[in-house]
Design a protein around this nucleic acid. Sequence first.
DNA 1: GTCTATACCAGGATAGAC
DNA 2: GTCTATCCTGGTATAGAC
Lengths: 195, 195
Amino acid sequence: MARTQGSHSDITGPRIREAALGLFARHGYAAVSMRQIAKEVGVQAGALYNYTPDKQSLLFRLMRDHMQDLLAAYKALEDGGDPQDTLRRFVGFHIRFHLQRPDEVFIAYMELRNLTPDNFAEIEDLRRAYENSLEGILNNGQKVGLFSISDTKIATLAVIAMLNGVMTWYRAGGRLSLDEVEQIYWDMVRRAVTA
Amino acid sequence: MARTQGSHSDITGPRIREAALGLFARHGYAAVSMRQIAKEVGVQAGALYNYTPDKQSLLFRLMRDHMQDLLAAYKALEDGGDPQDTLRRFVGFHIRFHLQRPDEVFIAYMELRNLTPDNFAEIEDLRRAYENSLEGILNNGQKVGLFSISDTKIATLAVIAMLNGVMTWYRAGGRLSLDEVEQIYWDMVRRAVTA
DNA sequence: GTCTATACCAGGATAGAC
DNA sequence: GTCTATCCTGGTATAGAC
């Protein structure tokens, strides 16, 4: 049966999210208008409101979906090996997952201040849950004497901050392969937490 | 001689920059209006244009002044000691300088995308000059065998990214003193670049 | 589900009086 | 140097026809 002319609910929705994702990442949430998003999708601005109640929800859902994907992907990979090995896998996972989604990552931490308080709290909970995964690894390693960390909370934030730096410079096809990047960062992280 | 009524060129200019700084840091450049800035200063929006040709220049000058201050402050502290000692001083300087100017720091790397291409290029040059200072330290230490770094360019970016992470969580009067924070980060940095 | 049209408000910037 | 008033543009969101 042919689809009704002008009816594209199954493809317009995703296309709106993709367009918003790219535009928010490039120009920032506040600088992007609903008309710009609509233009990129190829519909009129009013049509967007069949898919999102407002602009804020568009941003929030992009961020929430990203954080939930991140948590789910990490949970799927988690195992009970020794802490050093688990930390090595965390480093590789973090780098690769984030490099695969540069726009989502950029938005997820540049646009926090443009969330309403309720939405902000929900995203923060997800972010903290992810940080707790890493802190758990560091605590385990510390307990069994593999790591030597004066403050695991700060070390957690320091490691994540360091790894996030990859996003600012890495380009596929550049001087270094992904394996090399992963190796270099793993070396630095390993030494930073080891006596 | 009494100043002409309504004439405040010597204080209004700085007050505009202060207001813009705080508002841009809190809400983002694109989300802040000239009318908001004017309201905080206590003048009408039109009066702002006696001090800045436009909103873009307001942002650019805040960022340029900050980067120039950063470079000048670091140059004043630089010396020719051994690389390990110089690196330790860099870590302390970076943390303290940035924690003293949270708003400037936040803007300087959150609002890069809201600069015109010319302005962006100028800020980027300043940022790179600062990074080069650190890379020089790492290269020196590597040359004399004090450091063991597989890629000094990446190590430079990794160290700066890690140190910048302090800004996201440190609050004066919190659990850790500034000296303790500096010590913890110095330990991690030292180990990360040492075999 | 999408369109056209529009309500309504706020943005940056300027002109001219004081 | 600041004010008031205003121009012009563009923002989010909605109503109602198709």
